[in-house]
């Protein structure tokens, strides 16, 4: 048997299709693995899936959504093998219809965007943090299909600088954009009508795990009475329950040691985490492909999934 490197497959999926989200790529790679390895018994299947998931999780940093996707797949497999007598056909379905998942995943992004459109009204000023495909899809749809006129303020989102990418895309779509530094959020907040962010993962309590800076924005939003909306797909619900913004497992939250800017003369290293956790009290609503959910509805979905 050829040595199947799941990480390679995963990365290749991501490369081939830039529109793919990480959990879907993970599921795709797991499905491909099943196709290659062809386990014959259910226990072999389960073990195979488990070991590959571990490999995948350990090799990729910032793997919250990745682990969400893996967990979802794991649960699905387990449940199918436990409850269905004809898991064989189910497995065949999984293996053969890889394409279908990708399609469905893109659709779920579209569905989330559709649910979120009623939130955007004419003359709105929306604050967006970093880059999220769901948020971009939402704003694009509002502009193109519903012809709503609004403007967007995007944060730079250091250290990754993804805000620039978002700003560029929005500008190409014809939406008026303004870029601000992360520290200026409090300054512009009174002009803003609502805040829209994406999510890497949604925790059990309804809080979200997202790029660093989301928690700060959430706090400011609450203090200034501005609604804070999160747009995400439902397959990002993950089984974590952090208690504080920095209560995330170490492997997931790999720090980046960034280079000291040339102007400054210090030898102090700049270490920054890439993601943080925003508790559910700061979130007004979650826009998902299942509809607009309150944070407590999220827990119910997760409970249902993990209910044994």
């Amino acid at each position: 048997m050829s040595s199947f490197n799941i990480t390679e497959a995963y990365l290749k999926f991501l490369e081939d299709d830039p529109d793919l989200t990480m959990p879907i790529a993970a599921i795709e790679s797991l499905v491909t693995m099943l196709r290659v390895k062809q386990p014959s018994t259910s226990s072999e299947l389960i073990n195979l899936v488990k070991s590959n998931i571990e490999v995948l999780k350990s090799s990729i940093s910032n793997a919250i959504s990745l682990s969400a996707g893996c967990d979802l797949f794991m649960r699905f497999v387990l449940r199918n093998t436990n409850l269905y007598s004809d898991w064989e056909s189910c497995k065949k379905n999984l293996v053969e219809n890889g394409e279908l998942f990708v399609q469905r995943a893109k659709e779920s992004r579209f569905k989330s965007a559709e649910f979120g459109i009623p939130f955007i009204k004419d003359d709105d000023t929306i604050l967006v943090h970093s880059f999220s495909r769901v948020v971009y899809q939402l704003l694009l749809l509002s502009k193109k299909e519903k012809m709503i006129r609004f403007r967007v303020i995007v944060t730079e989102s250091r250290p990754t600088g993804k805000g620039y990418h978002m700003a560029k895309l929005l500008q190409e779509a014809g939406i008026p954009v303004e870029l601000i530094v992360d520290n200026a959020v409090g300054f512009v907040l009174h002009k803003v009508d609502k805040i829209l962010v994406g999510a890497e993962g949604v925790a059990e309590s309804g809080g979200i795990i997202n790029h660093i800076g989301s928690y700060q924005i959430g706090c400011l939003a609450k203090a200034n009475n501005k609604p804070f909306y999160v747009a995400t797909e439902s397959h990002k619900f993950v089984r974590l329950f952090p208690l504080s913004p920095n209560d995330l497992p170490e492997e997931i939250n790999k720090l980046i040691a960034s280079q000291v800017p040339s102007e400054s003369n210090t030898d102090v290293a700049l270490n920054t985490p890439l993601i943080d956790f925003t508790p559910h009290e700061y979130i007004t609503a979650l826009i998902t492909d299942l509809g607009v959910l309150t944070p407590s509805a999220v827990s119910e979905e997760l409970i249902k999934m993990w209910y044994d």
């Binding site: 379905n93 219809n97 469905r104 299942l290 999934m305």
Partner: peptide
């Protein structure tokens, strides 16, 4: 139909169900 038998079918599985 199979989906009706599951006691608490999470709608998240709709992604993978066929």
């Amino acid at each position: 139909s199979a989906s009706k038998d599951t006691p608490m079918m999470s709608s998240m599985f709709s992604l993978l169900s066929t």
